[in-house]
Design a protein around this nucleic acid. Structure first.
Lengths: 354, 354
DNA sequence: GCAGTCAACGGTACAGTTTCCGTTTTTCCT
DNA sequence: AGGAAAAACGGAAACTGTACCGTTGACTGC
């Protein structure tokens, strides 16, 4: 029994000190056992480990963080937890980091740049070892500050022109090009785009969209491009109204590439409600390849964003920043998007004959 | 400039000590300013706050946690981050806790009880102030240990018989009853159930299912109940095969209540692929009311689990445990599920005539 | 002029762990 | 046996912030 057991409640967590007193050793020795320091004899090591089990000892990570300067915490800031894309990223990330003993602190910025800044501040106060941000900022200032303070950080999904930062994401121009080229192959000639907010992903995709059309010599009437300022959560509603507007045009589009899958779902609803058919009258392609794309009213052709891979690669990159000695120059990992073709773009001319 | 500025890198975070030295005050005074202690004169307060801004001071929360014994961290353990239900819960929770300055550390147990225990240990090592768990444990031992150590915790979604614990979730028996009664009202008479793994939610729902049928005097052949040992992620695949098996029965069911929406989506796919119609031949009801339920092949009738409300109420309960003085006895918050009727159960007899 | 009060500030002792450098003990060699 | 080297262990400071209590000086009232 430890000397202090009378005054310390039986329910308080054991400390190095308690074990030391119980075994007539110093805290230093116990600490060394904990960290597998070679100084310790086999016999002592076993005695200590035994007592640790008995007392259910767990090192106080806050105390350890204070002295080592490393918290073993990674901070993740995303615009919206409910969006399946970020859910997947968080999952992959969490799995990758767990193996090395890192925990993940999660913050949702609700697509609000000011809130995002606050959350980042909060994470910095916690002295997270690395920050992972899918940013909704329009300015790059926050990240310059991070650089000044030498806080390692990784941008995911959305990046900034002119900011040399670590980045993991898909090649968004390729996303737009892939989907649009596919629509053209499917026989569409009046192809519209429903875009997202003013972030790199949306801009990259619309650029790819333009490039694909231009390459095939197809004109893009400006009214065929609808850029929407919705957050990631209201995509379906915004896709719905955008599509309604596109259908009033003369002639209406016969193919639509949507910024993301929720938007595409909204667009699909608008098309069907107008009495038109998907894909015969209007083919629709989305982006994100959400898990349930196959179960939709018309199974949705979508560009896979590799969300799981993004999480996993981000974990790798973050760990490299932390464990790797030399502060390497910023790296970019651009994953190749993959087109997953489903019924929403399978127009007669392409449909496999039975 | 602080005296130590030569030896401390310009990029290291400022400490109370730095500010104190700069202003010829003691750390104690600075600390008091930080915490709005009444001792401080207006003039000093302003001087200090000014210097804090200049140095971009952020209190070291690890150090504070060490001395106060409170980390201002809540730990959340869920079986699967990708499941939209837990995404919503996490979002609601995060929002509720943020207001009081708490951060959320997220762990995914991947539906593995052993991993869940490890994650809980890890969170305890971090000295989280409160633990929120959607548990996949089959035994109750882990939570007894938490009680011994007087760690406040809240169970969500899944609870345990015979464990007096704080709980927030829906009334699962009511969920089953609601959906099943609705199927009966829709004219179904051969009603089957595709259930989930061996946790309280699945058991409660199947119990409600039985109760509803019993109340109306409808028999339940044992082969009409398929309990599946899938995790929350593989629901669609498992629903698919389960439904395929149900369709081989003679007579096949004309209504199915599924444990959750992914399962229902899988079941729907199986029905449609078999050349049958939903809801005319087989009506389908799910649970969870996922955001895209409205966009499915056949829009899915589903019981809403109030995921947002669960997150929000959990935040409230957790904060009450932390801020509230007296350690109150465990409370249970049972939210009322709501049925959301869509086309998948709108059988002719119930369809509104035009 | 002096006790009493109050506002404003500081000294010191922690919290639980690691790190740096000593000290003691054991082992080995000649 | 004597000495050196290796093995095993410990003291004290450090990390940053907070809590408790003490100190200082100015002002009040009589």
């Amino acid at each position: 029994m430890g000397i202090e057991w009378e005054t310390r409640g039986y329910d308080m967590p054991a400390r190095l000190k308690d074990i030391a007193q119980d075994l007539n050793l110093s805290v230093v020795t116990i600490s060394k056992v904990l960290r597998d320091h070679p100084d310790i004899s086999q016999q002592t090591r076993e005695r200590v480990l035994k007592r640790m089990k008995e007392l259910n000892y767990r090192p106080n990570l806050a105390a350890r963080a204070l002295v080592t300067g490393r918290s073993y915490i990674a901070g993740l800031v995303v615009p919206d937890l409910v969006h399946p894309f970020f859910g997947q990223v968080a999952k992959g990330l969490s799995n990758g980091l767990r193996k090395k003993g890192y925990s993940l602190v999660l913050s949702s910025s609700e697509d609000d740049p000011e809130l995002e800044r606050q959350e980042i501040e909060q994470l910095l106060a916690r002295r997270v070892d690395v920050l992972i941000v899918a940013s909704t900022q329009s300015s790059v200032e926050t990240f310059h500050r991070l650089q000044e303070q030498k806080i390692p950080y990784v941008l995911i999904d959305r990046k900034f022109d002119g900011l040399a930062a670590n980045f993991v994401g898909v090649d968004d121009a390729a996303v737009g090009e892939l989907a649009t080229a596919h629509l053209i192959d499917a026989g569409c000639r009046r192809i519209a785009h429903i875009g997202g907010p003013n972030v790199s992903t949306a801009l990259g995709r619309v650029a790819g969209f333009r490039r694909a059309l231009h390459a095939r010599g197809i004109a893009v009437p400006p009214e065929y491009i609808e850029m929407r300022e919705h957050g990631d959560d209201a995509g379906d509603a915004s896709g719905y109204t955008a599509m309604q507007r596109l259908l009033t045009l003369n002639p209406p589009p016969d193919g639509v590439f949507c910024y993301n899958d929720p938007t595409a779902m909204g667009a699909m609803k608008a098309v069907l409600e107008a009495g038109l058919r998907v894909p015969e009258d209007v083919a629709i392609a989305g982006c994100g390849n959400v898990a349930y794309a196959d179960f939709l009213r018309v199974p949705l052709t979508s560009v896979d964003q590799q969300s799981g891979a993004i999480g996993e690669r981000t974990a790798r990159m973050a760990l490299a920043l932390l464990e790797g000695g030399a502060p390497s120059r910023p790296k970019t990992v651009l994953l190749e998007p993959k087109l997953v073709v489903r019924a929403s773009t399978l127009r007669p001319r392409l449909k496999p004959r039975k």
